[in-house]
Structures are given as structure tokens and as C-alpha cells.
Nucleic acid binder design. Structure first.
Length: 440
RNA sequence: GGGGAGGUGGCCGAGUGGUUGAAGGCGCUCGCCUGCUAAGUGAGUAAGGGGUUAACGCCCCUUCGAGGGUUCAAAUCCCUCCCUCUCCGCCA
């Protein structure tokens, strides 16, 4: 949410910023409701002060007649207060609903633009490899090697599902462990392992609700949602708390699966593992003071880039323009890795700063030394999204014979294995079947 | 899933209808005092919202797990829900 006081005092500024987003927001409605709300509060509170004083007088009153007279008076007052409170509740709720629909305002330095076509490539890092053979897309390569089983994934779970097998599964596990180690050992993050199924307020807190309900998986029985990103549980970890300034900044990193009801679309995007209903991600989340927020944003981006650099993958940085900013972000860059087999840039990280937008929704505050509590700033960035990193490794490190090399940094995590080749057959003997029989 | 106990301020812990926004203690802050420290001593020490002020501040409302109800008046009584502890059951 953005500051109600800002909307009240500088509505034109707010409207102008929202225009930059090419978005709509119920600013007039909010201003009207805010006015009604404050009028009602003033009225109700004056009556409450009267009733509180009157009720004390009842307790002190000696004379029974006088006592009854006061009680009648207070009863009448109570009825009027009840009416005002009912109206206030209605107005409050409408105001909150309207506020929840207002997107975050873009940071000053975010460039204008009309659509995602106006995003700006600010840097391209690393050399794109020149192949002396035609690089395969990962869906062919991985299937031939037997490390991704598309057919059985679909059989088990429906379209856009796949099963990683053998070294495919190991590679992803190695990547996860290595990324977590990198961020915890070298970038100062604390690893956390959060719940994947959370109730609605958490999604309002990070800004996924109410706008993106149709892209989330919901369990009606428990009224809980599968997380679309680790950002959801982590951002809410400190909700309703007032943190000591001394403990900020807080850095967390987590590995979780992410669940998204992607809108089905035809074409290339359905091939391979680029886009699924479930994918794994290592996510970084920061809680910082407003003063350090810009600096922390730069560092966060560097932390995400460090993963790609260490893997030796060519990537580019995309500054997102105002029109393409997500609902919650004040500023955002995407990191896109080059996939030579698929012949496209793949978004593997989104690094965003939210200023106090999420903090207001989730009630995340800190107490400046000697001062009054105030909202802190949140930031997050993928570090990184696993399937697309897998794609990039397979496609960039592939050999002419259809195998591919393991990037140096991952070898210690794969028993020094140097390349991934055709997987040996499975289930081929009495040994395996005998083993299976004893498994519970 | 079933039974029992309980959820009060930064922490511990009183408090079963009215001067209790909440005793007492601990912690913390500022001051006094004592060569230093410890001890002692005085004062202060929740959040949110509304109003007022140039500002410091002042006034008012709300909040004792959450929501609803009874009452002139609720931390205190009633209902629903959530959470914690505990016994039993079940279970990776």
C-alpha cells in the first residue's frame, strides 16, 4: 500500500506517477472514503468521550433516580455510537479494499515507457559461445540423455509437468545447495526453510492478493494458498513486529518450490522446462532501513549476478520501464541468461525494491534508535530460478555428441563429475525389485 | 481427531463488572548518590488512530489472542474462532 497521507496531501503527484505505470487506481474513491472516515471518527469519538464520562458518573451516582436517568441517557448515546461505528466499519472496509488496489509508485529513476518493449538492456555480460555445430534445445538434449522425462511428467501430473531423472535431478539439487552456500557464505544471508502453504493475509502482505488470485493455487478446505514464490512466507516472517534498528538489515535466502497457475498459451513457451506450474527457486529477501534501501538494491542485484558469473553463463541486465513494473515494485531489473539451443534470453532473476509498499501491507516496522516506529523497506531477488539455469547450463555447456559439461563450481557438489551423459537404464534386475519390496 | 489447562505491557506476573491502560517485580532510559563497579535512590518507560499546535506538547478514541454478543459500563460475563502447553489417538 502507499501512504494514505500522501494520497490525501498530494493527489496530483500520485495520479501522475500512476499514469507513468499506465495503470488505473481508485484515487478519487480513496480520497472520498478517507474524508467520510475521518468525519465519522470525529463524530463517534466525541460521543464516546461523553459516554465514558457518563458511565463513570453512573458508578458514582448515589441517588437511584439519578442513576437511572443517566443510564437512559447513556443508552441512547450508545445506540447512536453503534450506528456510527457500523457506518465506520463499512467505510473502513471499502477504503482498505480500494487501497489494496493501488499499485506501488515507480521510483524516480525508473525510465518511462509504454510497454515491455521499452525495457532497456543496460549491460550484457559474458561472451556468447560460438558453436561449431548446431546447438540443441534442452528439450531434445535432455530427453535423449534421459535426464528429463516429459512424457511421464505429463502422465503423472498433466500438461507442463516433467520429471527430472538421474543426473538431471542431481544437477538441480547440486545447484540449489551451491546457490544457498554461495549466498550464506559469501553474501551474508541466513538460510530459512519456510512453509509452502499459507493463509490469505500473507498473500495480501506481499501484494499477490487481491490482484493475482487467478494465478495462484488455492486450497478451499483450509483456505490456504500454495506459495508462488518464497517471497510470500519470508516477507511475512516479521509481520506485526517492531524490529530494533540495530538488527537491520536482515538478509534471508531460501530454497522453495513455487506454484503458479500460468495461463496456458500455445507456441514455444510450452516446450521444455522454461515455464511450468511448479518450479524451484532460490530466493533472497532483505529487510532494510529506508536510508540504506538504494544501496541494498544494488548489492542485491550484484548477489544475483554473482551466481551467473560463477556459472560462466552469458547474461544481460534489463532495466524495467514504468509501464512494465509489477504491481508491487518501485524499481526492478531482470537478469536474462542466454540459451543458445532455444535461441532466446531467459529471465532467471527479477530483482526488485518495494520501498515501504509491502511493509505497510504486512505491518513490518522498525524502531529507529530513540525514535518512533516506522515502516522498513523490503527487497527481493531470485538467486536464481532453477529450471532456466538448468536450461542455460545444458544448452551453453553442450558438446557435439549431445552430452554437456558440468560447470566448475558445481563439480564439488557432484562428486567431481565433469560431464553429464546418457543415463544408465533403471529397474533392470532382481536387485532393484527386491529392494523395492522392502521399502515402506 | 478427542479430553484438560492457558493466552494480560519488552519480559515475568496480579487482576471475576465501574477511578485498572492495567498492582508488583525484572529489564531499559534519564537524574541523584557513592573514588570506579556493585548496591541505593528519584522519575520515566506500549501501539494505532483522530483533533490541536510553528514546534515541544496537549486533548480525545481504540487496543488485555481474534471476532461477535450482554451491559449505562467488560481484561473481567456469554458465543465462535485461532494459537500455546499437556494427556490420549493417529502418522512421514
Amino acid at each position: 500500500m502507499i501512504d494514505l497521507h500522501l494520497i490525501r496531501t498530494q493527489p496530483d503527484y500520485v495520479r501522475a506517477q500512476i499514469a507513468r505505470l499506465h495503470a488505473d487506481a481508485p484515487i478519487d474513491e480513496i480520497i472520498a472514503l478517507d474524508g467520510q472516515r475521518r468525519d465519522l471518527i470525529g463524530e463517534a469519538e466525541a460521543l464516546k468521550a461523553q459516554r465514558n464520562a457518563g458511565s463513570k458518573a453512573v458508578g458514582r451516582a448515589k441517588d437511584p433516580t439519578e442513576r437511572e436517568r443517566l443510564k437512559d441517557e447513556m443508552r441512547a448515546l450508545g445506540d447512536r455510537i453503534g450506528e456510527l461505528d457500523d457506518r465506520l466499519r463499512t467505510v473502513d472496509d471499502a477504503l482498505l479494499q480500494a487501497q489494496l488496489r493501488v499499485p506501488n509508485l515507480p521510483a524516480e529513476q525508473v525510465p518511462d515507457g509504454a510497454s515491455e518493449d521499452d525495457n532497456i538492456v543496460t549491460a550484457e555480460i559474458g561472451e556468447r559461445r560460438v558453436f561449431d555445430f548446431a546447438p540443441q534445445p534442452h528439450w531434445d538434449l535432455a530427453e535423449k540423455l534421459g535426464i528429463i522425462d516429459f512424457e511421464r511428467g505429463v502422465k503423472v501430473a498433466g500438461t507442463r509437468n516433467y520429471i527430472l531423472r538421474g543426473d538431471g535431478a542431481r544437477l538441480q539439487r547440486a545447484l540449489i545447495t551451491w546457490m544457498l552456500d554461495l549466498h550464506t557464505r559469501e553474501h551474508g544471508y541466513q538460510e530459512v526453510y519456510p512453509p509452502f502453504l499459507v493463509p490469505s493475509p500473507m498473500l495480501y502482505g506481499n501484494g499477490s492478493l487481491p490482484k493475482f488470485a487467478d494465478t495462484l493455487f488455492h486450497d478451499a478446505e483450509e483456505d490456504k494458498w500454495l506459495i508462488p514464490t518464497a517471497e510470500v512466507p519470508i516477507t511475512n516472517m516479521y509481520r506485526d513486529e517492531i524490529l530494533d534498528e540495530a538488527i537491520l538489515p536482515i538478509y534471508h535466502v531460501a530454497y522453495t518450490p513455487c506454484f503458479r497457475r500460468e495461463q496456458l498459451s500455445g507456441g514455444r513457451d510450452v516446450r521444455g522446462i522454461k515455464r511450468g506450474f511448479q518450479f524451484d527457486k532460490v530466493e533472497m529477501v532483505k529487510f532494510v532501513t529506508p536510508e540504506t534501501s538504494d544501496e541494498e538494491y544494488q548489492k542485491l542485484q550484484a548477489d544475483a549476478e554473482a551466481v551467473l558469473r560463477a556459472l560462466g553463463l552469458p547474461y544481460r541486465i534489463l532495466q524495467i520501464c514504468a509501464a512494465d513494473l509489477s504491481f508491487t515494485a518501485a524499481n526492478k531489473v531482470d537478469l536474462e541468461v542466454w540459451a543458445p539451443g532455444s535461441d532466446e534470453w531467459l529471465e532467471v532473476s527479477s530483482v526488485a525494491t518495494f520501498h515501504d509498499f509491502q511493509a505497510r501491507r504486512a505491518n513490518l516496522r522498525y524502531r529507529p534508535t530513540g525514535g518512533r516506529p516506522q515502516y522498513l523497506h523490503t527487497l527481493n531477488g531470485s538467486g536464481l530460478a532453477l529450471p532456466r539455469v538448468m536450461i542455460a547450463i545444458m544448452e551453453n555447456y553442450q558438446n557435439a555428441d549431445g552430452t554437456f559439461a558440468v560447470p566448475d563450481v558445481l563439480r564439488p557438489y557432484l562428486r567431481d563429475q565433469e560431464e553429464i551423459g546418457v543415463q544408465p537404464p533403471v529397474g533392470n534386475g532382481a536387485r532393484d525389485l527386491a529392494g523395492l519390496a522392502t521399502v515402506q
